[in-house]
Design a protein around this nucleic acid. Structure first.
Lengths: 337, 337
DNA sequence: TTGAAAGCGGTACCAC
DNA sequence: GTGGTACCGCTTTCAA
């Protein structure tokens, strides 16, 4: 004896609530928003709440923000590639922190949209703030967003963009750490793994540059090692290893390091005696390898700090763009180097 | 000589465009939306486009959908825990497919919101469809969403919910595969790793149940092995291994399998001679372990199929909820079992 | 071919 | 204390 009501009822509006409670729409608004500037009798309050509950009334965010002239929506593009536990934690923390500040975090599925074109799509939602990881957003994009009401645009990536706040996450540092470490360990012919998977160049290039920089002016040579994330590619690379004469390698990250280490070991190359290996990201799996993997530990900014920056920027949109360097990198030496 | 204009201009509206182009707002709307029901002279078209470009006009999505009475927004909760490459791929594919069907995919940061409470928050955005992975959404939540205009609610998880379409991803199957395989390999005392990390019970419990089911009525015994994702916890578990008498273990997934294998090997337990190990998810790392890790390969539904389901449901909201079983599982035997 | 105007749902000012 | 009402930006009928 359920679902006697087959007809899907229209979405209830505040007018419906008002009618059912026998009051005006204004009163409904006052009650449901606890407007302090106006006093409503307890009896009326109850009637309104009761009516809203009965109808299952849910306010219409679009109507509200249209009227208010602004929203509390913080928009980020949804990551297109798998993100590791590090970044994932950071995201959760950020969402939690922004949520506590009463912002709504929304990740926009921007598959197939590029840079400033994406910015237009985001701008249609009139977010109060936009957080953009990676490069790809240009000054034009920032301008579009600001003109459409975004009070804060924050980039998280390698460089700063005119008009936007920046959390500089310069992966040069990561490569620099790795390069310096390998050099200290006595390596003079150093390979740097460059993943062939698309979407990773953003991190791979700066890391390579960092290694180069760390070794500039020394007697060490740097060699790029393009590598697809497959056993075959790794085996092929390992087969050519002896003739390469490499005595050290920065494997881009721990996962590529594991792939490469396995291939090298299968080939009879000894780690670290024949070649020192270091990864990055300090993933659990590095500790589980034998020899244990040396790695560059990366410290992302705290989600709470970024949330605070966003809030500050929203409250004072006129302020100078803040620029913070937030990517900490430090070598964790284990057994592979 | 840049930024002479310091004053932040107000967000341009279609009225501004109309004024600049010397036409009415209606005409602006016609032109920018390519309304076919009405013919606008080429000259006017150009003037409007020109004006829009010059002002950097971006339409206001909220106003538009308020007027239209519906949006093209497909909402999903943003994952709170790190997602693996499998699910990540699935998400990208889904976003791409929905994007091609002209939907906008938005992931709502629902950190700290529970089930039907979250549903209310989502409903405020008046999405045309809602996709909810996992359990946690009850019939009430579905009702709230539908009443607020969602034309399709799809759950992706272990069970179905009254009123919602369901993509049944029953992880029992995964455990069942693993259990049956271990039994076939001769195991009779079988351990099942239960991750202690929160958020994973949703998958762990059904997988355990699947193992139990596969072994029901046989002479094999099943034992739960709570395990935190740390080396210490794994070492402790491995230390107690001999007395446990286990000869087979389903390690929840490949990552926990790697953790456990390492601890067991460090303890001198031989794999697969002393104990057979199988993981799940068919991650690359399983192929890199020695012995190579047997695993349960999991087949998620195609993003395109789900996108099609959503589109169908949106076009025909009255239709019976579709229920599909979409989780394929098959054992990939390698060397660890 | 173009314009005037109503109205989507909510908020907040001003009367009563 | 409560109600009437103008208005946020956009679409779409109806008239001209």
């Amino acid at each position: 004896m359920r679902s006697v009501m087959v007809q899907i009822p229209n979405t209830p509006t505040s007018a419906d609530v008002a009618r059912l409670a026998g009051v005006s729409r204004a009163t409904v608004s006052y009650v449901l928003n606890n407007t302090s500037a106006v006093r409503i009798s307890e009896a009326t309050r109850r009637r309104v709440h009761e009516a809203a509950r009965e109808l299952g009334y849910v306010p219409h965010a679009a109507a509200r923000s249209l009227r208010a002239g602004h929203s509390r929506m913080v928009l980020m593009p949804a990551p297109a590639i798998p993100v590791g536990p590090l970044y994932s934690r950071f995201l959760s923390e950020l969402q939690g922190a922004l949520g506590r500040l009463d912002y709504t975090v929304v990740q926009y599925g921007s598959v197939g949209l590029e840079g400033d074109e994406a910015a237009r799509a985001w701008a249609e939602l009139r977010p109060v703030a936009v957080l953009v990881p990676g490069a790809g957003l240009g000054p034009q994009g920032v301008a579009v967003l600001k003109r459409s009401g975004a009070r804060a645009v924050v980039t998280l990536g390698p460089g700063r963009v005119e008009g936007a706040h920046a959390l500089l996450m310069d992966h040069d540092t990561v490569g620099h750490c790795a390069g310096a470490h390998l050099y200290d360990r006595g390596c003079r012919r150093i390979g740097v793994v460059m993943p062939e998977e698309s979407g990773l160049e953003v991190y791979a290039r700066p890391r390579l540059a960092g290694v180069r920089e760390a070794l500039r002016g020394t007697d060490a040579a740097v060699m790029e090692l393009p590598l697809a994330y497959t056993e075959e590619a790794a085996a092929e690379l390992a087969a050519r290893w002896p003739e390469s004469g490499l005595d050290g390698v920065f494997a881009y990250n721990d996962e590529y390091a594991m792939l490469l280490m396995r291939a090298l070991q299968d080939e009879g190359v000894r780690i670290p005696e024949d070649v020192a290996v270091i990864g990055a990201d300090d993933l659990m799996l590095g500790r589980l390898l034998r020899p244990r993997l040396s790695t560059v530990h990366i410290e992302l900014p705290s989600g709470r700090d970024l949330a605070a920056l966003v809030d500050r920027a929203v409250r004072d949109p006129g302020g100078e763009p803040e620029v913070h360097t937030v990517l900490g990198a430090s070598v964790i030496r284990r057994e592979s180097s």
